[in-house]
Design a binder for these strands. Structure first.
Lengths: 195, 195
DNA sequence: GCTTGATCTGAACGGGTGTTCATATCATCC
DNA sequence: GGATGATATGAACACCCGTTCAGATCAAGC
């Protein structure tokens, strides 16, 4: 036995990524073995090394892809020009984007400590570009006199913190729909910056 | 060689806990070996089993202790009777308590997935007792007509989310002092519930 | 249909894992 | 100062780890 029938990198590659994503999110990077990932893919452990140089890069690749997707999707998201409209767009985008990929969000936050300093800095830079976008919205709103707040950076952290926290409790079949949650949080974000 | 000079469980026990806390927080539960913990304590791996039945219980014990300390400290915290005063007390307590034990806070949130279902439920029950305290403050304030909010449970999550997030960016030698941060967040919490 | 390169297997590598236990030494109390 | 229990060692257990690689089999293009 060697190459198996039907095998193709276009199929196996994405399956490796999805299996790693799921298992890393569920058990943590360090707790997951290459053999577990391989089993989930339906392949032997050695075959994984056709798709990643090593385990570390598998994690880095997942995190980097997620952060780049986040930035790209945010740039493509429709945004009004006025600060209030942009703040609403940011709020709804964040909730929507994060709710669709809870595993990647979880990993990108949890597994930072398993990165080498260079990889960590790379991911942190992408993250702070995103945070910076929110800070700018807040500063613009203050300058226009429509937002009132003491510290734009701290307020930005507070907003992101409370929005990201949603993933820890939201359930599809729960008391509230996604639309309910979006509406509630948009109201709260408005309160946080209201003049 | 066997028992070493000066050895005593009153000394070694706490050192085992502190070493485990520090290493679990830094590298993650699964990534830390019993031999690493033992090295940090200055002892051989076998000696750790005088202080914990196994590695899992070492984690559970740390998390349970943290959650119980949290609840006990909150109950002992001075609390006014009016909802606004209680909300301020909760806000300042949470920031103060969490800032003093960032490692335990981190572990208690991050390593939930490494618990067996029974231990998970135990920790989750303690956590929800704490959350419930905030929900009650909010509900009382609404009833008294001094708070305005749409959903007490979601607002409670939002408040806890934004307060807990502080630990991810606050630095002792940063731009803002602890008192600055407390003041900023108390202002924001007030905005979140203001009538 | 043959060739070529992509894809996977299966075994092996050195080393690390959590845990147990017989044994030795120390601290403590009579 | 001798007896007793608490405390640690160090070796061993069976097993799992990430990674490598020669060789086998398949897919794809000529």
């Amino acid at each position: 036995m060697a190459r198996t029938r039907g095998s193709h990198s276009d199929i196996t590659g994405p399956r490796v990524e999805r299996a790693a994503l799921r298992l890393f999110a569920k058990h943590g990077y360090a707790a997951v073995s290459m053999r577990q990932i391989a089993t989930e893919v339906g392949v032997q452990a050695g075959a994984l090394y056709n798709y990643t140089p090593d385990k570390q890069m598998l994690l880095v690749s997942l995190m980097k892809t997620h952060m780049q997707d986040l930035l790209a999707a945010y740039e493509a998201w429709p945004k009004p020009v006025d600060p209030l409209g942009r703040l609403e767009a940011f709020t709804r985008f964040h909730l929507s984007f994060n709710s669709e990929r809870p595993e990647a969000v979880f990993i990108s936050y949890m597994e930072l400590r398993n990165l080498t300093p260079e990889h960590f800095n790379e991911i942190a830079a992408l993250r702070s570009r995103y945070e910076r976008a929110l800070v700018e919205i807040l500063e613009d709103g203050v300058q226009d006199g429509i937002f009132q707040l003491e510290d734009a950076r701290v307020t930005a952290f507070a907003i992101i913190g409370m929005l990201t926290q949603v993933n820890t409790w939201f359930r599809e079949d729960g008391r509230l729909s996604r639309a309910d949650v979006e509406a509630l949080y948009w109201t709260m974000v408005q309160r946080l910056v209201s003049a």
